[in-house]
């Protein structure tokens, strides 16, 4: 199965994933250490509970699938908070690893009916809800792996739904409750994905691979490849009306001739405003 999507959701539990799998009609991609469900745009990876599984799943998915530049990664799932009502949607502004006190700042997008709060990732389920932060067991692993893999901070999001609080602690969480909470916030999640996509789209378009079709016709050294790419980039920027592919290159015997031809054309061009 070809997995080329532009957004990946990492969730800890099947119960968190199932409403999304149903909603987006995702299909299972087999032969991975983590269950993965996907369509052309979206992947959902079920990481399992805890920081380490969350980090490993992100690393595996990022390494295994050739992601587009600025692929969006979202850690989605349930979390606790001492006071907030069950079902409250939260965009996480800061992730704190309780054991190391290391912090990360995921990207934020303004969403309707969504709080913005810090989150602390614990090693185990929390019963006392001491801090005024959300609590979960995965986000720090997700952020840590994302940073280590040099994923851009603009592409890392943590989005949670409150599932437990002082009045109804984690022991009361059921599959049905989780499914209901996730279903309730599919529109908000969709808004997040859409807005994130719009933000990164422009930067994604700017980084297209250039000139690779010429590499089959002439033999370019690595240096010449880089000179050609830079030449084509400049040509495309300076002359938006002419396709660089329309340049007459048939008379060029070598890669060096191609580059010289291109450079001659470039010398005549000045920025037009």
């Amino acid at each position: 199965m070809e997995l080329t999507g532009t957004t990946t959701l990492l969730v800890a539990l099947k119960a968190e994933a199932q409403p999304l799998i149903d909603h987006y009609k995702l299909k299972s991609a087999r032969q991975h250490p983590f269950p993965i469900y996907a369509n052309e745009q979206l992947k959902i990876v079920i990481t399992g509970i805890g920081k380490c599984p969350s980090a490993t799943a992100l690393a595996h998915t990022a390494a295994f699938f050739s992601a587009l530049p600025n692929h969006i990664w979202i850690n989605f799932g349930i979390a606790g908070h001492k006071d907030h009502t069950i079902g409250t949607a939260v965009s996480v502004s800061k992730v704190i690893n309780k054991s190391s006190q290391q912090t990360w700042y995921p990207n934020l997008i303004k969403l309707p009916n969504t709080l913005v709060k810090s989150l602390t990732t614990y090693e185990a389920v929390v019963g006392d809800y001491v801090d005024d932060t959300l609590c979960d067991m995965e986000a720090a692993g997700f952020m840590s792996a994302g940073s280590s893999l040099h994923i851009k901070s603009e592409c890392l999001f943590v989005f949670k739904v409150i599932s437990d609080n002082k009045l109804s602690d984690a022991k009361n969480i059921t599959k049905n409750l989780v499914a209901g909470l996730v279903k309730m916030h599919i529109p908000t999640l969709e808004a997040l994905i859409k807005k994130a996509e719009i933000k990164v789209q422009d930067a994604r378009n700017g980084k297209l691979e250039l000139g690779s079709e010429l590499f089959e016709k002439w033999h370019f050294t690595q240096t010449q490849k880089s000179q050609l790419r830079e030449g084509i980039r400049r040509f495309r920027a300076l002359d938006k009306e002419t396709l660089w592919q329309d340049m007459e290159l048939d008379n060029c015997a070598t890669a060096k001739d191609v580059i010289e031809n291109l450079n001659r054309r470039l010398q005549k061009l000045l920025p037009k405003f």
Binding site: N70, S93, L108, V116, S147, K152, S153, D202
Partner: peptide
């Protein structure tokens, strides 16, 4: 605006792997 507390501005401003172009569309 939503206000978020941080310890030092460098935690946000100087972190690695930021995309100036994406941020410029909607800076904080």
């Amino acid at each position: 605006s939503t206000v978020i507390t941080c310890e030092h501005y460098g935690e946000i401003f100087n972190r690695h792997q930021q995309d100036f172009r994406i941020q410029k569309k909607d800076p904080c």
